[in-house]
């Protein structure tokens, strides 16, 4: 039987509906490599994950456990939790890292409750001290940095997507199938699934280097296209305020803020966004913030490096024209 290094970090890698590794994989393995030896677990429905071992090894997993527990694509979270429990039993890791995605949080919550492990959520970094693994958090919209550790035992840590820049060195592919005894824990069943087609050629919002976000000031779905146009000139991802999402102009997944996505890009351009505290919570750690708003007292200006008091329907087209002209 395979033995696992003393300093193993067990990393749960999610797969996409089409069988590849989810985007979060590189960051999770990168984080793991900073504090120990990354051991990956890939859970998928029978035959669904292609080349999981090669792909995970290329991102730095020293060993890759692959599990195909029964009902992996028909029952929520529980089959993955069962696989993770089996893997943790085998590997005896110093920590378990999971993506802070919707699925990841469901698995982390159940796994931590089942194994009575200390749980740390939405970490933006990990480190190791004499006593073990420490999770670093950015809370209240980046206003505070908080470090957490368990009183004892291996912590379960979910890692904010797009927050880890470190990448692990590629390893040679070494994989083994994992046998998963079912726990029998009841789960919700998945009756149907509709994959969301990736229609955009733009960068993904999470982890994007540049973001252009639109708010209620765009006034309609048609006008919101102006946000897309500026984003394309800058090579940026598109985000939105909750007001724009609630209005139905853009999908939920575009929402930046406390209850949406947290981003820390090089450049954040806010168009017709007032800068409510809940919106700021998701973007105020951006390196450079630019805001265009016709209200000189909009709170967004308190944190903007470059603020324009003006009508975005005048300023943005001119900005786009000016940038396009200089590119030629």
């Amino acid at each position: 039987m395979t033995t696992f290094p003393e300093d193993s970090i067990l990393v749960l890698l999610e797969t996409t509906p089409s069988g590849g590794l989810a985007k979060s994989a590189a960051g999770l393995l990168g984080a793991a490599s900073q504090v120990g030896t990354p051991i990956a677990l890939v859970v998928s429905a029978s035959g669904a994950a292609s080349n999981a071992t090669q792909n995970a090894a290329a991102l730095g997993a020293k060993q890759v456990l692959t599990a195909e527990p029964e009902g992996a694509d028909a029952r929520l979270a529980v089959p993955t939790v069962d696989a993770l429990a089996a893997a943790a039993d085998l590997v005896r890791p110093d920590a378990v890292l999971i993506s802070n995605s919707i699925d990841g949080r469901d698995v982390a919550g159940r796994f931590a409750a089942r194994t009575r492990s200390a749980l740390a959520i939405d970490a933006v970094g990990v480190s190791r001290d004499e006593e073990g693994i420490v999770a670093h958090h950015s809370v209240y919209g980046g206003a505070y940095n908080v470090d957490c550790a368990p009183t004892f035992g291996a912590p379960v840590i979910t890692v904010r997507e797009g927050s880890i820049d470190v990448r692990a060195e590629a390893a040679s592919p070494e994989g083994a199938p994992l046998d998963v005894p079912p726990s029998g824990a009841p789960a919700a069943s998945i009756e149907s699934f509709e994959e969301q087609a990736v229609v955009s050629t733009r960068p993904e919002l999470r982890g994007a280097a540049k973001v252009v976000a639109g708010g209620r000031g765009l006034t309609s779905q048609e006008q919101f296209a102006l946000v897309d146009q500026l984003a394309d000139v800058l090579g940026a991802a598109v985000g939105a305020s909750r007001a724009a999402v609630d209005a139905g102009w853009v999908p939920n997944s575009y929402q930046v803020g406390q209850t949406g996505i947290s981003v820390s890009p090089q450049l954040y351009v806010a168009l017709g966004v007032s800068g409510a505290i809940q919106h700021r919570a998701g973007m105020q750690t951006a390196k450079t913030i630019v805001a265009i708003n016709k209200d000189p007292d909009a709170p967004i200006f308190e944190i903007a490096d470059f603020g324009v008091v003006g009508d975005l329907f005048d300023v943005v087209p001119q900005l786009i024209a000016s940038l396009s002209a200089r590119k030629e």
Partner: peptide, 11 residues
């Protein structure tokens, strides 16, 4: 609303 798409679930 799952990470990769939309599903119907029941329990």
């Amino acid at each position: 609303e799952a990470d990769g798409g939309v599903m119907t679930v029941a329990a």
